[in-house]
Design a protein around this nucleic acid. Structure first.
Lengths: 138, 138
DNA sequence: CTTGACCTTAAAGTTACCTTTAAGGATATG
DNA sequence: CATATCCTTAAAGGTAACTTTAAGGTCAAG
């Protein structure tokens, strides 16, 4: 699998794949004939893993660490487990906050529905500002 | 209210408040005596608004736009409404994805609980890699 | 056997969001 | 009335995650 093929499968650009490779997150082998980087199915899984953890808010550095530990055969990684166990509550908390915020936004939008368009109600967003600028009670 | 006071209330640094001010998101008036920037309660609400929308994934540029429209008296802003109406589904989608991911992570962590620590089970993260690297079905 | 689409690299550029530095003026306290 | 802690500014620096550039090698098609 060449760089562009992996990129397409993973939904990223070839440059991004090259960047991850430079950064040590992917470890392709080489075609001895032409020096091309060749990726296998493990790279596909890794790329997916990277995207999952990016979405969860992990940095590429953290992900590199996790992948490195993941690749060590025969070594249980309580270290990794601890890292993840530590992060999970924070992730849940962030999701909670996001939900609370989006709910409030939904409500604000709904309450706007009732306001006739073009009438001198003025500042719709000002109202959202009022609605949202109160301290969050989760 | 001086810059540091607003910063403390908003839970950011004074430098961040100054930065937002430079960027036109906050509009303090001046103490004519000493040139200090003075913020009122509207600035507090704005700062909270900024943080809410940052968390929801809006850029400072977008937020500046929303705030600008919010501040126009007497002008309904169907424009702003449209912007927000457009973003909300995406925000919900992101939250859904985050939840799906975190649920899978929870499950993976749970399944690890059963594995005796220090035994030759090896690559715990490799297993998470397997668990998480399958296409997401939301 | 040329043309166009791939591949390689190092290095520089980009964007967003701050943060730090530097040099100086204002204010509050013992 | 010194000194510590604010305040001001412009400009430079930092970091993450890419992206672009440039200069060149490889390959498949016609």
């Amino acid at each position: 699998m060449k760089v562009s093929e992996l990129a397409q499968v993973g939904g990223v650009t070839a440059e991004t794949v090259r960047y991850y490779t430079r950064e040590g997150l992917l470890r392709p082998h080489r075609d001895p004939q032409n020096g091309y980087q060749l990726y296998d199915s493990e790279s596909v899984r890794k790329l997916c893993f990277i995207q999952c953890f990016r979405m969860l808010g992990f940095s590429l550095g953290e992900i590199r660490g996790l992948l490195a530990e993941a690749m060590q055969e025969g070594t249980p990684s309580p270290n990794t487990y601890a890292t993840l166990a530590e992060q999970l509550p924070q992730i849940h908390a962030r999701i909670q906050e996001l939900q609370a915020l989006s709910r409030r936004m939904d409500q604000a939008m709904e309450s706007w529905q009732d306001i006739p368009d073009g009438l001198p109600t003025g500042h719709l967003v000002s109202r959202l500002l009022d609605d949202l600028s109160q301290p969050v009670i989760v």
